[in-house]
Design a protein around this nucleic acid. Sequence first.
RNA 1: GGAUCCCUAGCUCAGUUGGUUAGAGCGACUCGUUUACACCGAGUAGGUCAGAGGUUCGACUCCUCUGGGAUCCACCA
Length: 754
Amino acid sequence: MDKQYDSKLAEEKWYKFWEDQQLFDADPDSPKPAYSLLMPPPNLTGNLHLGHAMQHVIMDALARFKRMQGFDVLLLPGVDHAGIQFEGTLEKLLAKENLSKGKLGRDKWLERAWKFKDEIYASFHSTWKVMGISADWSREVFTMEPKVQRTVFEEFDRFWKEDLLYKGAYIVQWCPKCGTAIEDVEMEYEERKEKLYYVKYTLVGTAGKEWVTVATARPETIFADVAIAVHPDDPRYKSFVVREARKPLYKRGAPGEDRVVIIQDSRVDREFGTGALKITPGHDPLDYAIGKDHHLPLLHTIDKHGRMTELSGDLEGLKIDQAREQAAEKLEQLGALEKTEDYTHSVPICERCKTTVEPLISEEWFVKMTPLAEKALANMDKINFLPSSYKQILSEWIEHIHDWSISRSLWWGYRIPVWYCDKCNPHHLVGKTRDMIVSLEKPTKTCQTCGEHHWIQDEQVLDTWFSSGMWPLATLGWPGSQSSESLIADSEASLKADNSPEWNKMQKYFPWSFELSSGEIKYLWIARMIMLSLHFADQIPFSNMFFHGQIRDLQGRKFSKSLGNGIDPNQMREEWGTDASRMALYSYTAPGRDGRANKQTMDERAKNFRNFSTKLWNIAKFVLESSVLSHQSSDQARLEPGRIVQGDALHEDDWWIREELDKLITSVTKNIESYQLHLATESIYDFIWHTFADIYLEKSKTRRVEAQPTLEHVLKVSLQLLHPFMPFLTEELWSKLTGEKTESIMLSRWPSRR
RNA sequence: GGAUCCCUAGCUCAGUUGGUUAGAGCGACUCGUUUACACCGAGUAGGUCAGAGGUUCGACUCCUCUGGGAUCCACCA
């Protein structure tokens, strides 16, 4: 045996060996029971980071463990196209070449996007392989491949037929920089010190003698005010109700000019400001709700680029911040500004680009979620959540569900499969089904209204989560042969031909046995998979849902490029080897617990496990060299290490270590089965180093020949127990222990007690 | 404004139904290189388990409150 373990050599050699032997592939025809793990598809945005590495390494350990236990394991990998995030990444790249979406145009841009996708893909693959991930690469799925397209179309089409889809003008959270509506869950909040402006609205017919003062942080939106609301029980404003006031900023000739009506609404907070609230339905969610209930008109003073509209008079074209300043100045000049106060509040910003989010009115597609939510809530008990508290957290969110806005103004993603007759329905309104069709490809039929053929597809794409929410089903080929008629009727033959009954075969793996995620996307992704799977397949998507914590920096901040506090898993692996890096990660996998690390602390940990590799290597060296020494006397025992030499009573040390080993088998098995990988790895580590090596092996030196069968047995079982976590080293030593001709440790049977 | 989680050795963290002297790794210190291993071995120091009450024969573990930190939710203009 070599003096030192060469981890790099072993990694290359064994990964290739496993792939060549097809040891990672699932077999739907196998009589073995299924155990399925669905890899959360990383976003197509660049390199895999430490968090991904942790996720994949957790899944891999479970997959390897279950294979050894005799399951037909499916560990299915994939990648998510990640609409907004991908576009953002590509945009930055293009900017360096002085290019942009606008300059390229849709077709050229898409061409470029697909190329970029391939580059990222290649980098993902190399990382996965060097991390030793034993996924079934033959079944890898990308969220924008034809298989998923079928699923997504089916999803949309069924929603449509079930009358759960609608399009309408709604107040959405709009990111002016990304140029698209985003979900509440895609926003963050940032504490900002701003000003609260106390603005006077004089009452009509009092010659400026009476007025209402309104406190607002957004004087620039006064142009779009349509009312002032007060609380019904507020005595201060009883006499004002139903009267009209003049807003101090308005555009001459604009609808309603300067008039706003004073209304009552119990949603107004009497304690805040003056207790009077200006109502701007076009630019504030609460105002929108109040405005809708009181049948107030909608005015727009800010457009989708974050600039003031024509309604804003002199301020037209200005950015919001500038407009605010100028509006304040104007109010001052007009004597309408009573006072200003410092005001700290949290402002919604876009999670991705950190731009201030603007509530705006936009035409968007929505899915009615109530029926899906009800079904999900009734089935939450069927899923085992780790930590268990997530069941309640998710249930509460689902209970308070609101309709899901699924359209995004992007190019990267699934174009909404709706076609409008450009002649009969030029504004692409919805509700007139005669001149619109849901179809994957351009309809061949004619418009029922005009009898002609002017079909134009909806410009927007579907929210990324509309497809990733179907991940558990899409990856297995749902709906297979059960797909709906419109797919077949309205689409090209290529899709029909590809419409294999894969789903029937792959249902063996559904629901998935195990899924994992960071808590961050519990609503965006996890809750939706639960709702969608139950809705479409009538089953929960997975029976075990594991939420891991996040690794943060030493101050507890998230890793981010801008902070430069990230840790590169590739670099770690380069320096300490894959197995050691994996072990370092397992120590952070207590369910739901965040961990803190920087480059240095991660290195310390990885180094420790690198040393552990060496330790184990040396243990094996000792055992195997001893076996050479004792070759003549106990040949039999060497060939079958577990076998106790007949007629010999075991030495008390042998009994002891075998007892300890049995206890280890029990605890490791139990800990992996309950997804406590940090405990499993710790106990194996402790046993091998501090029980087996430090105590037993030392003692055995005085009676080597007699101890040899036990030494070999304990080593062999230790390797098996460790294999899910340190696959390369254990395979390497396994081959040395059992002889090069024997089969992979992956095919060995998970140890059980004597 | 609600909700959840966390505060254990200098640092990063374990501690699964409450039960004997509270653990690991790294770091520190003292010894030790006699062939498995210095990427090592033997050992030492270091914690009133955030604080205060309560339940209990017994609490790091359960309950209440206080302080500190994190996260999530919510229509605070």
